[in-house]
Design a binder for these strands. Structure first.
Lengths: 195, 195
DNA sequence: CCATCAAGCTGAGGCTACCTCAGGATAATT
DNA sequence: AATTATCCTGAGGTAGCCTCAGCTTGATGG
């Protein structure tokens, strides 16, 4: 019924690529200062481009957000695989969660978009989110297999906790960041106790 | 510098009260189905009232949200005082947190508004949020005094955890609610272990 | 019952942002 | 140089926000 979500692609023509890049740069800046609902017309004019051009490359706001966050999330997935090769599965998991929280809260409104994308296939960010889900689940299972994390914790629950931390971080835009402590409390809560 | 935030008041004239009530009812319904950014013009027309009338009673969106959630939060504070008189401080705290999560996530966008209000005095909801903060802090301190909750947990951190749970609940609008499990994990994490 | 008037109501209108589309421009290709 | 698919533009329709000048009406005192 519903076609696949549109995923923005860097155009082949030189002028197209130039504008595509300029829009993406302007969008990243605008999202960081004004959140995910920044004005698209501002972004276009900041990129020195007409509004129609923005819509040509990014027909929906979601497709623009996806393109603006793609690289960061790709790195996150790659880092998960590197961490999985390390010696301590719990360290790997905690380190990854710390990093994930930062990427999830790059700008106000992103956590909500990503958590919605995680289970909604009709969304541009879904593919990337699903990849992250797998990465996180792998790290979790390894930590559980090593007996370091309570075995009844599901990946979905882990992402709930992670999203909560990221959301808290998002809110504290102009204050100090309380997400490290949030994550610490959560992690101490889900690890197995053996002292 | 900045004057006190405007707090909506039920008017004295009969026609004013009628409209005030109708707007509040329409607003509650609209917020629940469309979130905190529901169209004010829709709310007005749903209440059978011109847009100017809505703005007369509720000059800002925040003042309307405050009025729409006032009762629920008042009850929450009252319930905290009742619970504080109970025998088990930990039970009281967990029960109250469960209830708070529900009230905080009455509609999409509310948690964000309330957590911002909690520390921002220029906000209509601030007074009510500060009262809740006291209620929660009291219950927390009692549970800590009884040695049931880790003593290094601050009220602010408690509210971060609580808000995280409420936010997760908010997101899962049309799915099953994962906040009870979230809260369970958090609570098991912050209680002292003595088994 | 009436006069008075503060309180309340209305909706047009200016503003901003979203998004579309018909017509024009241009990079790539042959 | 000609062709053409790709790309660009910006006016314009739609929707929501919010204000304000002018009108209406409930409450009050006589």
């Amino acid at each position: 019924m519903d076609g696949k979500p549109y995923i923005a692609q860097r155009p082949k023509r030189a002028d197209g690529r130039r504008n595509y890049d300029a829009i993406l740069a302007a969008a990243r800046k605008a999202f960081e200062t004004s959140g995910a609902d920044a004005s698209l017309e501002d972004i276009a004019s900041q990129a020195g481009v007409a509004i129609g051009t923005l819509y040509r490359h990014f027909p929906t706001r979601a497709s623009l957000v996806e393109a603006a966050t793609r690289d960061g999330l790709e790195n996150l997935v790659a880092h998960a695989q590197r961490l999985a090769a390390g010696p301590d599965p719990l360290d790997a998991l905690t380190e990854w969660m710390r990093e994930a929280v930062v990427h999830f809260s790059t700008f106000r409104g992103l956590v909500g978009i990503l958590t919605r994308s995680m289970y909604d296939e009709g969304t541009p960010s879904h593919a990337m989110c699903a990849a992250m889900h797998r990465s996180g689940a792998d790290l979790l299972h390894a930590a559980q297999a090593a007996g370091r994390v309570r075995p009844d914790l599901t990946p979905e629950e882990l992402f709930d906790l992670l999203s909560g931390a990221a959301w808290v971080r998002e809110q504290a835009a102009s204050g100090r960041d309380s997400s490290p402590r949030f994550l610490q409390l959560v992690l101490e809560g889900i690890t197995t106790r053996e002292d």
